[in-house]
């Protein structure tokens, strides 16, 4: 039996549904020493902003039960260095690039997209409207449905490439946000970004990360992410990229069943930088055993 792992996210065709989540693989150079990026569906780059960002002061991360909190603060090389240094490297590796963009203002999103529009190897934009760890932008946008609508609308006007809106889970009705994104022309949504959390040292009574709060990721958030994907799937007709605590192929299948067209691997990359390719091999095995010819047939196949 020929197994087809390819999936379509709007007009974007990917060889398999496994993407590497933004902010968990930098710009690919370090992780490429451990894993073959040409075999992955796509790499979503670390958020790029117009100007370089230094990021938050240490301590930036702490482990929590079945997860971790991070407050990196969108540390990145800035758009110019990204175009000059990072894109050529990823092109050489034959990686499929989705560029994640973060901004503090509406204009900054638009300007970034306009500049990157001419980069042929960028196959899509993922718009980060939901970083919980920066003062300007971030959740101020992501938690306000009007902002998400406005940003999507303006970005849509500025590019012909597919756009994916990365949604915040820190809202009461995520499907409303997905609906707005769709209405304003988004091709897909990523769900979910990290959840706001914190952790304190009981002896010093101080927060364990300098930013006080951080974004919770890892297996701890998987049930929440699944519920959010399902909520969107049942209410809005838009491709969903599932993200949140995926550690293995079983998690991937579960996300697809509740409605994800593709998924992203985040925290698991830190623990096993080759996990994405291992998962792709395991998905082949699963599909062969289960006689699933097209993996895309799993999407939204839940029995309720």
């Amino acid at each position: 039996m020929n197994i087809d792992l390819s999936v379509n996210i709007g007009s974007l065709k990917l060889k398999n549904p496994i993407l590497l989540a933004s902010g968990t693989v930098g710009y690919g150079n370090e992780i490429s020493e451990f894993t073959d990026l040409s075999k992955i569906g796509a790499i979503v780059t670390k958020s790029i902003s117009l100007k370089p960002r230094k990021g938050n002061p240490p301590q930036r991360i702490v482990e929590t039960p079945s997860g971790m909190l991070n407050a990196i603060g969108l540390a990145n090389v800035g758009l110019e260095a990204f175009v000059k240094e990072k894109i050529p490297f990823l092109e050489k590796l034959n990686a499929t690039i989705i560029c994640n963009i973060a901004a503090s203002t509406l204009d900054e999103y638009v300007e970034c997209v306009k500049i990157l529009e001419y980069e042929k190897s960028i196959k899509a934009f993922e718009i980060n409207v939901s970083c919980p760890n920066v003062k300007d932008g971030g959740l101020i946008f992501g938690n306000d449905i009007n902002w998400v609508g406005k940003i999507t609308e303006q970005v849509r006007k500025s590019t012909s490439k597919p756009i994916i809106i990365k949604l915040s889970p820190n809202v009461p009705n995520i499907s409303d946000f997905a609906a707005v994104a769709k209405k304003e022309g988004a091709d897909a949504v990523s769900a979910i970004n990290t959840l706001v959390g914190t952790s304190f040292d009981i002896y010093t009574r101080k927060p364990k990360i300098k930013n006080i709060t951080g974004g919770l990721s890892g297996p701890a958030i998987k049930p929440i992410a699944l519920a959010k994907v399902l909520e969107i799937k049942r209410n809005v007709d838009i491709p969903i990229i599932g993200v949140g605590g995926i550690m293995n192929w079983k998690d991937v299948v579960e996300f697809m069943i509740v409605g994800a067209t593709a998924i992203q691997i985040g925290t698991a990359n830190f623990i096993n930088p080759n996990v994405s390719n291992e998962i792709i091999n395991d998905l082949y095995k699963f599909c062969s055993e289960q006689k699933i010819e097209n993996i895309s047939s799993l999407t939204g196949s839940f029995q309720i």
């Binding site: 370090e30 992780i31 020493e33 230094k54 990021g55 301590q59 930036r60 991360i61 990359n269 623990i271």
Partner: peptide, 23 residues
């Protein structure tokens, strides 16, 4: 030393401030 998630540069979790005002 520092807490770190990955150990090879992808998580960006272990910055140290340098005298030239960067991390």
């Amino acid at each position: 030393e520092s807490a770190m998630a990955c150990g090879f540069g992808i998580c960006q979790g272990c910055p140290i401030e340098t005298t030239d005002n960067s991390y």
